[in-house]
């Protein structure tokens, strides 16, 4: 298992579209991808879970990946965060 703390740095937090991007990215990997915020654990492959985290700008999220491609999964999620959830 690998973990990393990531900060939400876009202007509007994880609203519907970034949430969809996170799910899209997480489901590409075999590993489990878990987001932890304020003690709440969310499966990053479920859009409802991600939305229920209600991560606002500046929120710090602990990302935990576990499985055969855990390193790649974590790197992909990190890239998504640092790109401010950009599309193109």
């Amino acid at each position: 298992m690998v973990t990393k703390e990531l900060t939400v740095i876009n202007d509007s937090g994880i609203h519907a579209r970034p949430a969809a991007l996170i799910v899209e990215t997480a489901t590409k990997f075999k590993s489990n991808v878990i987001f932890i915020k304020d003690g709440m654990r969310a499966n990053a492959k479920s859009i409802m879970n991600i939305m229920l985290l209600a991560a606002e700008p500046g929120a710090v999220i602990k990302v935990e990946t576990e499985g055969p491609d855990e390193g790649d999964a974590l790197a992909a999620i990190e890239a998504l965060f640092s790109s401010r959830f950009k599309y193109d």
Partner: peptide, 16 residues
Amino acid sequence: ARIFDTHMMMLQDSEI
């Protein structure tokens, strides 16, 4: 139109 991607994900969400 991208909001509808979110809607389709909600539709398939295993939580639901």
